[in-house]
Nucleic acid binder design. Structure first.
Lengths: 198, 198
DNA sequence: TAGGTTATGGATCGGTCAGTTCAAAACTTG
DNA sequence: CAAGTTTTGAACTGACCGATCCATAACCTA
């Protein structure tokens, strides 16, 4: 038919996602996106309609990969409920330790977007809300299971425990972005788990 | 001597702080700052050297007012250590419920700045780090006192509990910005306190 | 009230923003 | 190899960015 693309759309999306993750939406210019992806402006605007559209796709990609990895941990039937949550928190610590730039943790694109955009970008806010709902439901299911298998002894409502855990993960990410090291994050995770067995 | 100012510098600073709080640093234009303060560009640049300088002063003001209010709670000798922390968390819930725009919580300028700027603005990062250190020290002191007065029964290291509490507060703020309502925040606070008495 | 000083508003600065246009290049298909 | 289609790079657009300049207004002091 016609001239084929010389780049991999998924790789470009990945590079864009990384850039938004590192610098935030506003601070990322279209030139930054050209540099990061290696594409020219035409290719970017031809493939992704606009900066905002590209951001939405990058965010969707991030949410999808992140949350599905976390849900996989939460649904691992080989582990007790408490151990799944322990593993989940360890995954978060690993992620924060791993994804850094300029000596600092990148945090989590979901959290970063909640802070930077949720208030004035209804579409992004909707994506984040759906993701939160999905994660809260999964957490709640595991916590209910933990109540049954005895690994979660807290008498609190599982919904409340789920919201607490979700908040705790966000808090760990903020702490990491604020300079907390791996040991600090691990101790936060330990104390978080205490609340579920109180 | 000469023509005096027709505006109150502190009120202008307050308006600027509020704007940065609502929109973030990058998304706030100098025109936004003119609109919010009611000042002309000349007055703003004459009084505060630059947008960045104005932001730093706004952030310093926020940190100062926020943290000194929180330290006042933590040093209230009429309350047990656990009750001080309970009160602190209630203050956070109130703040998140109170400071909203467009139907959404504004979160916390400290957290927002950690996410948006800490990675690429060393001066802001330094201010945030000093504030975090101050808050962690105060939390730790209260937790140690709680161990002595018996209101904190967790055997965990008070430093770890302090980092946990600090993270929990950040997590509550993120949750709030993500749409959590007052009841949700209160339940998160309840579970957070469980961890200290585990 | 005159002289000195500062505040103020508006015009303006160069630069960068997101996004568009267009001609040339590159590839498929017949 | 030629027609047709799409990609690509580079130049370009108007708008807005943070910041400065300057003439004028407003005020204090002497």
């Amino acid at each position: 038919m016609a001239r084929p693309r010389t780049f991999d759309e998924e790789r470009a999306l990945d590079a864009a996602m990384r850039t938004f993750w590192e610098k935030g939406y506003e601070a990322t210019s279209t030139q930054d996106l050209c540099d990061a992806t290696g594409l020219g402006r035409s290719s970017i605007y031809n493939t992704f309609k606009s900066k905002h559209d590209l951001f939405e796709r990058a965010l969707a990609r991030y949410i999808d990969s992140m949350t599905s990895a976390q849900l996989a941990v939460l649904e691992d039937r080989r582990l007790s409920a408490a151990d799944r949550i322990r593993t989940l928190l360890a995954t978060v610590v690993d992620g924060e330790t791993e994804h850094r730039a300029g000596g600092r943790s990148l945090g989590c694109l979901t959290v970063n977007t909640t802070v930077e955009l949720a208030a004035r970008d209804a579409r992004a806010a909707g994506m984040l809300e759906r993701d939160t709902a999905r994660r809260l439901a999964a957490l709640r299911a595991v916590l209910e299971e933990g109540r049954r298998d005895g690994s979660i002894t807290s008498a609190r409502d599982p919904g409340a425990l789920a919201r607490f855990l979700n908040a705790a993960i966000g808090g760990m990410r903020i702490s990491s972005q604020g300079g907390a090291d791996r040991a600090a994050l691990e101790s936060i995770a330990d104390v978080t788990l205490d609340a579920l067995t109180a």
